[in-house]
Write a protein that binds this DNA or RNA. Structure first.
Lengths: 204, 204
DNA sequence: TTGAAATACGAGCGATGACTCGTCTTCGAC
DNA sequence: GTCGAAGACGAGTCATCGCTCGTATTTCAA
């Protein structure tokens, strides 16, 4: 696998193709999950031959990595918008809201997100793209927690952040794959679960 | 696939082989997950040829189903032991303990459990074995909740049970794959998360 | 003892899917 | 306009894996 040097000169056409391929991958990942998504199907979805896909991405995982990078940026932007200075002193329910809402929105806007975030079916268990996304989320939560409760030891903050991320990941699928009529209800449960875990954890 | 009639006369030797194959499958599932576990590897682990495996199981999924059935029985036994009459009025933290402890123990005793319970990498999304295990857990939780808070509408009970199951599933991996020294700590977090969600949910 | 059913073997079939390679087309700097 | 580089093609390679089938061995009831 993978002979292509990492980077080469791209023409405008090439950059466009890469975006097309990432979009197609997002769709196919969303429909089938990472493992069952075939590179040929992704190429076909992008209206391109298999060979062209490999002109731009060393392998399937590199494609996932590019997508994950997109998602991390989207997440960062969404959260930046949701936090004005002083957010740390918000009532906890509202803080949870401001964390969760952007992530759900990123998810609905980028159908492939969940497939990468929740994937257990990667070649190597918890492969790079999944790890990156998890790290991004854990890091963000840890940052917010530290701002809110500066006295909490770093290790404890991290534990809480990891658990929160896993709770979120577990319910994410249910929320976004529910029919829109029920989505709000599941979202409420997700927030309740997070709040129920965080509220006592941040008091001690 | 699958020409063999579902059942035929088994000799003692055959029954033994089936148990061997299930044990081997549990190990390999635990190590690689369902998707990456190959039937040839399972046969080899059992010290048997691929053909022999298919003498007893129509296909890979039938093997998973047999395992899932085992696990459901183990779960039932473990919970039956944990609940004497009057459990419903236990303090909530202890009730959570009595639900969680047996499941963790079943998990540690049966390495394949998690692979089937948490699998997102099944042929069809959430295939039969996974669904069965989830249903067993959701059903048990719902039963306990109903006994404890009889006034709660059935639909609400089910929602709470589903969410609890997902929280459990999300943290299960972390708990059992942690080094034994850290396991207790993660287990505590798991119980906190469940308690934090359930406590307010059962009050209203 | 015997023969039919059950068990066991393992090379290999068939399908799938990631990835390649030789060839042709398009782009854009000069 | 020219020409080298970038882009595009898609049939085909190679490896993997679920599963089969022809044959050989073991069991056990009669």
């Amino acid at each position: 696998m993978a002979r292509q040097p990492a980077e080469r000169k791209r023409q405008a056409r090439g950059e466009r193709r890469m975006r097309q391929l990432e979009d197609a991958a997002a769709e196919v990942f969303a429909e089938l999950g990472y493992a069952r998504a075939t590179t040929n199907a992704i190429a076909a979805r992008a209206g391109v031959s298999p060979g062209t896909l490999y002109q731009f991405f060393r392998n399937k995982e590199a494609l996932a990595e590019a997508l994950a990078q997109r998602y991390r940026a989207a997440l960062r932007d969404a959260h930046d918008k949701a936090f004005d200075p002083g957010f740390a002193s918000l009532p906890l329910p509202e803080l949870v809201d401001r964390m969760v809402q952007p992530m759900i929105e990123v998810n609905l806007a980028n159908p492939g997100f969940k497939a990468l975030f929740a994937a257990t079916d990667m070649p190597e268990r918890l492969a790079a793209p999944t790890r990156q996304l998890h790290q991004a989320v854990v890091g963000k939560i840890a940052e917010v927690l530290t701002a809110r409760v500066p006295d909490l030891p770093a290790a404890r903050v991290r534990t809480i952040a990891v658990v929160s991320t896993q709770i979120f990941g577990a319910l994410l699928g249910t929320v976004v794959s529910a029919p829109p009529a029920e989505r709000e209800a599941w979202l409420t449960e997700l927030k309740r679960a997070l709040l129920g875990y965080l509220e006592p954890a941040l008091r001690s």
